[in-house]
Simulated assay, not measured.
Amino acid sequence: MTTQLGLPAGIHACLFDLDGVITRTAVVHAAAWKETFDAFLRQRDGAEFRPFTDGDYDTYVDGRPRADGVRAFLASRDIELPEGTPDDPPDAATVQGIGNRKNALLLSRIRSDGVEVYPGSVRYVEAVRALGLRTAIVSSSANTADVLRSVDAERLFDVRIDGVVARERRLPGKPRPDTFLAAAHDLGVDPERAAVFEDALAGMDAGRSGRFGYVVGVDRVGQTDALYAHGADVVVADLADLGDHR
């Protein structure tokens, strides 16, 4: 049995990823990662250069904390780099330096192009709140607060667990469930009473391993089968497709 929100009865809280679920920033992240990794690989490999692909993004980077994404992709190419420190400059040949280079490119793209929300997602979150469910934003991005503020969406969420909070609390990122579990805890809701909304495969893994009451996959790029394989209970193209709140 589902409610008018398309959720099982007994769900008391909704935990939303940011990029690709609430905002149209997943494509901006993907472009910044590609520019970063392609420049690094081209300089390192010369004529043997193999570009960073959409499949690389989906498999190794999407949904993960920045440094984890760097490590995972480099490992897939059998590349080892020093870890470095969080204040490494963007041109440093370290895990942290590459991550900082990507973040600088991301912020530049956001400043020049702005950020858009998915209107169906905003309407859905507003409908959730109107029925008395608690809401949280759960993102690996350290820029979450700024992005939400830029689109006047801070008001939609009772709790924010992002890259900044995860670092402060030493929470491992997705595909581990710890950030979602922290959001449920801060909302005062047991995981089995919370629904997770994610577009990334790592987020699906987090929802499944955290034993949340319902896991909603949002397919913006044609990966419905993969979202189901990684733990989605239902997959939609847009949150507007859930329930009859439109």
Results as ranks from 00 to 15, higher is better:
S108N: 15
R123Y: 06
V221G: 00
A92W: 07
L239N: 05
K34I: 00
V28K: 11
D186T: 00
A200H: 09
A30D: 10
V27E: 15
P191S: 06
L18W: 05
L41R: 08
C14E: 06
R50W: 00
M204H: 09
A145T: 14
S112K: 15
E126Q: 14
V115M: 04
Y60N: 09
V122D: 08
D87I: 14
V128L: 15
S121V: 08
E168P: 02
R155Y: 07
R193L: 05
L74N: 09
V138L: 01
D68G: 00
E48H: 13
I79C: 13
L106W: 08
V115L: 01
V164Y: 01
R123A: 14
G6K: 08
L201C: 10
A200M: 03
Y57I: 08
P172I: 04
P175H: 05
A202D: 12
A92C: 10
Q96G: 00
T23E: 11
R208G: 03
D238W: 02
L7T: 13
F49S: 12
Q223M: 14
A39V: 13
V138E: 04
I137E: 07
G10C: 08
A39E: 15
T3L: 08
V122G: 07
V165W: 00
P8K: 09
T36P: 02
A104W: 04
D68N: 10
L106Y: 15
I110W: 10
T144Y: 01
A127S: 12
I98H: 07
G173D: 05
L227Y: 04
D233Y: 06
R169Y: 06
R123K: 14
L187E: 04
R170D: 13
G173F: 01
A127R: 08
A232D: 03
G6I: 10
D54M: 12
L171C: 09
G213K: 01
A30H: 08
A145V: 15
T23F: 12
L181K: 05
A72I: 12
G114S: 06
F52Y: 15
R220Y: 02
P82N: 07
L171E: 04
V138R: 08
S139C: 04
E116P: 01
P86A: 04
R134D: 04
L5K: 12
F157G: 06
Y228I: 11
S76H: 14
A202E: 13
D54W: 09
D244W: 02
A136T: 00
G99N: 01
A47F: 06
R149N: 12
R111V: 03
G99F: 03
T144R: 01
V236E: 03
G84A: 11
T53N: 12
A195E: 03
E154S: 11
F40H: 14
G222Y: 08
V215T: 14
V115Y: 04
A145L: 07
F212V: 03
A30Y: 08
E154G: 01
R169C: 06
Y118C: 04
A30R: 13
D62L: 10
L15Q: 01
A182S: 02
G6P: 12
G222L: 08
